[in-house]
Write a protein that binds this DNA or RNA. Sequence first.
DNA 1: ATAGGGTTAG
Length: 596
Amino acid sequence: MLFRFFNFPSLIHRSLFKSFSKTTRFNKFRFSSTSLALSSYSDTHFTKPSNFSSFDSDITSNTFQVLQKLYFLRNNPSQALSYFTQLNQQGFSYNISTYAAIIRIMCYWGWLRKLDSLFLDVIAHSKQDPSFKIHELFDSLFEGVDVNQNHYLLRAFDGFVKACVSLNMFDEAIEFLLHTRRSVILPNVLTFNFLINRLVIHDEIDTALFVYEQFKRLGLIPNHYTYAIIIKAHCRKGDLENAFRVFDEMKEVGVNPDSYCNTTLIEGLCNNYKSDLGYEVLQHCRSTAASVDVYAYTAVIRGFCNQMQLDRAESVFLDMERQGLVPDVYIFSALINGYCKSRNLDKALAIHDSMISRGIETNCVVISCILHCLNEMGMASEVVATFENIKQSGVFLDEVAYNVVFNALCNSGKVDDAMNMREDIDLELDIKHYTTLINGYCLRGKPVEALRLFKVMEEKGLKPDVVTYNVLVSGLFRNDHACEAIDLLKYMADQGVMLNSTTHKMIIEGLCSQGKVEEAEAYFNGLEDKTVEIYCAMMNGYCEIDLIEKSDQLRKAIMLLDAMLKMNMDPRKIGKRRETQVTYQDVVERLVQFSV
DNA sequence: ATAGGGTTAG
């Protein structure tokens, strides 16, 4: 039998409430007897309540009395909750029946937010105390209860699921929904949406889609929001065909897509480098009188910017204005970011000016784009000067903006300035700040300082990510600290941080730079998936060795190049770093030299 | 209830 949460009419709810609050005959009301979870006691226990105006400490020591107290406060959820909260401060340890009692009251009165936080407590409690079983709590809640007459108790299911989801305990939430009760109780669609949305946000797309299919089969009726999440999920996977199919599905069940569904699709297309199509969909929506807001235009503009079609982006901007929509700071920042990425600083600044002249305030996001662009264009000193100017003008600059400045300072060898600046402002550093500064020390030829900062970072409880390790590993290799680099790689693996292709590339480069080409070769041969960068690092390693004495190595380099071409790997398609491309040219030049 | 930008390596 399937129950739906909250689906009972409010009339029934009100009459439930009336009969509940009027009565003094407890045995008629499951709420009273089960709330005390003391079926072995006779109801007469509750007819003579003790004085409930005082919070005597002796009351707190006794579960029975706590339950009794909660019972008397059952019609006053506010007092019941504050009494319940105080118990903890007084050293009372909650158990299944006391949780059940307060949860019942919160359910009954529909205090859903309090219910959610109660379940957060319950989960925390169950994590600390292995003997505390969630299913026993639910057994207690529903013990002897006819759910048909006490629909409100079903809210507890949603509360628990929501608490799990907000703690990212997805498996527990799904397991609970699918298997815990004798019969499947469908979640409220809001709870369900919350679950699948969080799954998508955490990149658990396939789980989200699986759960969606499961619950549809069980009878859950999706709403607009559900469909928007599912469209987003398909787009995140790059599965645009299925994203479109959601619209067919909506048509089949007679749900008209709302503007969120449309916008989600438009954004998904643009994020997948299909901005032309995204724009077409936008225009189509517009022609069918479906509302299209500034958000959708931002997605299209951002999409064209990512595809380096700045003129298209700008034409969308003009089109939007023609439609009478007013551009906001997001629209402008999309354009500014686009021009910054294509290193067209003048244009970016011109748009920034025009934004300000329209009375739209700039912000740290826009400023960060511009500062970053300045740095990319080799104007590190302008980054610092501009940053100071902007800050003087009163614009709030956040941790990201600071990192851009740190990076500019570090890239120009001024890691100490960056460190001093940090001290001046008392900024709480995050992983990216530390990575930037560690890189700064490596660039400055101070590997010991870099290592020291790495340790500081860990002592602060920050967990270095693969980028941090890559920066430090390559910095240690470059600065003749190969042993420390290798130790760090071991430590990285111990910490469960996965190496990526950049790590492999840096290991090969590092070993080769130490003259350990054989070791690098063994490492290279042990790799299953080799990227173009990894091949080039190995080729380059072979080439580093003296040409005449080690012609054998160059033969190997040629073989690698050959292998790459056979696998349709283009050695010219190397990452964005200029140095790598120069490396490739070196390889080719050497090879040409060798073959002559 | 619904969604948005910028930063660290390559």
